[in-house]
Design a protein around this nucleic acid. Structure first.
Length: 582
RNA sequence: GGUGGCGUAGUUCAGUUGGUUAGAAUGCCGGCCUGUCACGCCGGAGGUCGCGAGUUCGAGUCUCGUCGUCACCGCCA
């Protein structure tokens, strides 16, 4: 027998018991006459004691143990004379009577501890060692618990978990596909799904009514801290629903997860912001509502005083940083540098200090009187002691830059508390997005998203103005999920394809199966998909999803542990009928 | 596709204006130690300064290229 208990089990009440434990040697402390060994497994750490007086041979053996050796030890549980309150098993130790090395270990390349000394690339190369560390292990356990709660909740709501194929068909819209060659159909390729979108709609046509799946999705696009080439979605679809039905159902899911995982009660319904409104107030479609500091339009109030930067700009806007009027020249310069970074794209930054003694000082005193600036302050809700930060330029770009500045100020003023969660729905996205390069419209969400029916006439006059019946769930500035009410009508779907520049043939070629299905009584339906990795990372207090995935890929899409992607042997290529060009 | 950061001992990092023998901590190895739990003390080993060119009397340090890695922009329906 390898073990009677785990390394996290034993307590004071177990004193006197004869036990067998197996695990890894975390560390040993050798005193010559006696040796302590910390034995670790997934459940905890238990101290083993070896004594030279009791059994010199065994004690010598224990002194030779190295880090990460796998051993089995049997002995008697005893209460410690000096306890360790920092671990759960700290009241007891095992007086070892027999010990066996099950497997020796080379010295690991980094320390397997709460805070490792290993860098990212090493940790990835030896991921199986990294996962032994409590933080990574706990992230994976958190992920497991969330997945179980999702299943529990959705099952309780009558959702059926159904698997959809992984070898599917490449589609031209959207992200690049990963493709898989077919040996039996030479010259033809499968694609891995970017999401099970069309299949879940077909399941609605099939009458399954409520579907969900925790499923891998694949997108061959450049990566980020919160993007992996393969990632996991909680994919859901429902029949006979309107937007509010979907939002209510999944507010329920979110509320359940907050409660079950974090023990937090989140008030429902979540706030709903239109895309238009969030772009105006926060400069982004995924606002962080943990703090105010909204963007205010100063275009009108600031114009006409001879300051070319503002007078010549399409748009001027400002944010009011509470209590920051004391910012030094150096800090203001830092902020100016921040907005001028190419990623932010600002040309410069105007500041106005509403000092606590009532004075108003600004970087544009030459052009504006105190009275002028007081009006700016009124527009932005500035109070005594606040700092107003103003930028000018093209509307969209300036709002974006102000949005980024807002987040920066939120960080600097410690307004983004990791332990607070403010979810909201962003609704009424534009249905279509104009692409300058190709000179045509693309679906902002996907081509099956229903327009808001009252906007349908705009298809003819001003397609860019058509609003989608789509929604995103945003928590603390992170896009956690999104979905829409779908088109279930063949004719409307055709109109949509037409506006996207699909020829009738192309549409039939790509999505004919869906159009065909719609002819056989497609119910009104809609759904949503959540970025599971992001949601877990958010609950785990991290911006990077990498440490919530057991075996993630690096920013170049490589797995440095198994070293892939890799070339294929010529034989294999030949069998697939593929020649690699350089 | 683009911008930027980083690359020095097993690991994490320091390394001045370009200057003689490249340091620290930790880990590792050896010794001592009977109540530690980041044990302590003593000693030791350990380096192609990512790689390749160039500038220079002289390059870890400067320049260019290249590779790796991270962050961001584009991209991600």
């Amino acid at each position: 027998m390898y073990r009677t208990h785990t390394c996290g089990d034993l307590r004071k009440s177990d004193a006197g018991r004869q036990v067998v434990l197996s695990g890894w040697v975390q560390r040993s402390r050798d005193f010559g006459g006696m040796t302590f060994v910390d034995l670790r497994d997934r459940y905890g750490i238990t101290q083993l004691v070896f004594n030279m007086e009791t059994d010199p041979g065994l004690c010598e053996k224990a002194r030779k143990l190295g880090r990460e050796f796998v051993i089995r030890a049997s002995g008697r549980v005893t209460e410690r004379s000096s306890k360790n309150p920092r671990i759960l098993t700290g009241d007891i130790e095992i007086l070892v009577e027999d010990m066996e090395v099950l497997n020796a270990s080379r010295v690991p390349p980094f320390t397997i501890e709460e805070n490792t000394d290993g860098g990212d690339d090493l940790r990835m190369k030896y991921r199986y060692l990294d996962i032994r560390r409590p933080p990574v292990k706990d992230h994976l356990i958190l992920r497991h618990r969330m997945a179980q709660e999702v299943r529990k909740y959705l099952d309780g709501q009558g959702f059926i978990e159904i698997e959809t194929p992984v070898l599917i068909k490449s589609t031209p819209e959207g992200a690049r596909d990963f493709v898989v060659p077919s040996r039996m159909n030479r010259g033809e390729f499968y694609a891995l799904p970017q999401s099970p979108q069309t299949f879940k709609q077909l399941l609605m046509v099939a009458g399954m009514d409520k579907y969900f799946q925790i499923v891998k999705c694949f997108r061959d696009e450049d990566l980020r801290a919160d993007r992996q080439p393969e990632f996991t979605q909680i994919d859901c679809e429902m029949s006979f629903v309107e937007r509010e039905d979907v939002l209510n159902t999944f507010e329920g899911l979110a509320g359940h997860l907050f409660q079950a995982i974090l023990g937090i009660q989140v008030p429902a319904p979540f706030p709903r912001l239109s895309y238009q409104e969030t772009m105006e107030k926060y400069g982004t479609d995924k606002p962080d509502l943990r703090f105010g500091m909204e963007i205010h339009d100063l275009s009108v109030v600031a114009r006409g005083k001879g300051f070319q930067v503002i007078d010549g700009a399409e748009y001027s806007g400002g944010i009011c940083a509470p209590g920051a009027a004391g910012y030094s020249r150096k800090l203001l310069d830092e902020l100016t540098e921040f907005v001028k970074r190419p990623q932010i794209g600002g040309r410069g930054l105007i500041w106005v200090k509403f000092e606590t003694d009532g004075n108003i000082r600004s970087s544009v005193d030459k052009f504006y009187t105190a009275e002028d600036l007081r009006k700016w302050g009124e527009c932005c809700g500035a109070r005594s002691g606040d700092l107003l930060l103003v930028m000018s330029g093209e509307t969209q770009a300036t709002r974006y830059a102000l949005g980024e500045l807002r987040l920066e100020m939120g960080d600097r003023l410690s307004l983004r508390d990791k332990n607070r969660f403010i979810p909201l729905w962003v609704v009424d996205f534009p249905l279509l997005e104009w692409d300058e390069e190709t000179g045509r419209f693309y679906a902002m969400h996907h081509p099956f998203t229903s327009p808001r029916l009252e906007d349908i006439d705009l298809f003819e006059s001003d397609p860019a103005k058509v609003r989608a019946n789509a929604y995103d769930l945003v928590i603390n500035g992170v896009e956690i999920g999104g979905g829409s009410i779908r088109i279930h009508d063949e004719r409307l779907q055709k109109t949509m394809f037409k506006n996207l520049g699909f020829s009738e043939e192309a549409a039939r070629e790509q999505f004919g199966f869906l159009m065909q299905a719609f002819r056989y009584g497609a119910p009104p339906h809609g759904g949503i998909a959540f970025g599971f990795d992001r949601w877990v990372a958010l609950f785990g207090g991290s911006e990077s999803i990498r440490d919530f995935i057991a075996f993630p890929k690096n920013t170049a899409g490589r797995d440095v542990m198994i070293n892939t992607p890799a070339p294929l042997p010529g034989e294999q290529l030949k069998e697939l009928g593929i020649r690699v060009i350089k």
